[in-house]
């Protein structure tokens, strides 16, 4: 006998928490990477001052906002996309897509190709932000995992990679 029932969707709390922590740490790491890595700094130089980028997950978040202030400093602006004007939005359609991307089962390029996230803004700025994101992942992750997360693993010298990694981890945790 057929039956009708109403289904109220549940929240995926643990996945949401993982993504929240990931985005919080990565946002702080981007801010530090812009100070310690010349390549990341160069990418941010192409982005105009006062420009904010948001990476968010629909429909309940979490989100990460990174931007440049009027003095040209790169800042992590927290997880509230309503609190400031956003000039570039990178939006993941749902939390499962975000988990695929941020547990490194798929690279950013593959995720874009599979329509797991969409872009609202200028493509050159988004490409620059993806390059920054890739560089930060190289700093934060061991090579075996980072190779899954990015398109091409860069041929950086060990000194650049390890000194950068130590600085980014320490300064992102301590917050300066």
């Amino acid at each position: 006998m057929a039956e009708y029932q109403t289904f109220r969707p549940k929240r995926k709390i643990f996945k949401w928490l993982y993504l929240y922590v990931f985005m919080w740490f990565t946002g702080r790491a981007i801010k530090i990477a812009a100070k310690v890595d010349a390549e990341v700094k160069k990418e941010f130089d192409q982005i105009p001052n006062g420009f904010n980028v948001a990476l968010e997950v629909l429909p309940y978040g979490p989100a990460m906002v990174v931007g440049k202030n009027e003095e040209g400093q790169v800042l992590y602006l927290g997880g509230n996309v309503q609190a400031q004007p956003i000039h570039l939005r990178m939006v993941l359609h749902n939390i499962e897509n975000a988990m695929k991307l941020f547990t490194f089962q798929e690279s950013t390029a593959i995720s874009f190709m599979r329509n797991r996230l969409y872009l609202d803004g200028e493509i050159p700025h988004a490409a620059a932000f993806v390059r920054v994101f890739d560089a930060v992942e190289v700093y934060l992750l061991p090579k075996i995992i980072a190779k899954l997360a990015i398109k091409r693993y860069p041929a950086w010298s060990p000194i650049r990679k390890f000194t950068g990694r130590i600085q980014i981890y320490l300064r992102a945790v301590l917050g300066f």
Binding site: A2, T6, F7, P9, P59
Partner: peptide
Amino acid sequence: VQHAFNDSEMVCGIYDGVP
């Protein structure tokens, strides 16, 4: 299918067992 709708804001009606 229910799992796919978790963490979406959509309240769904389910009619199980179309003859």
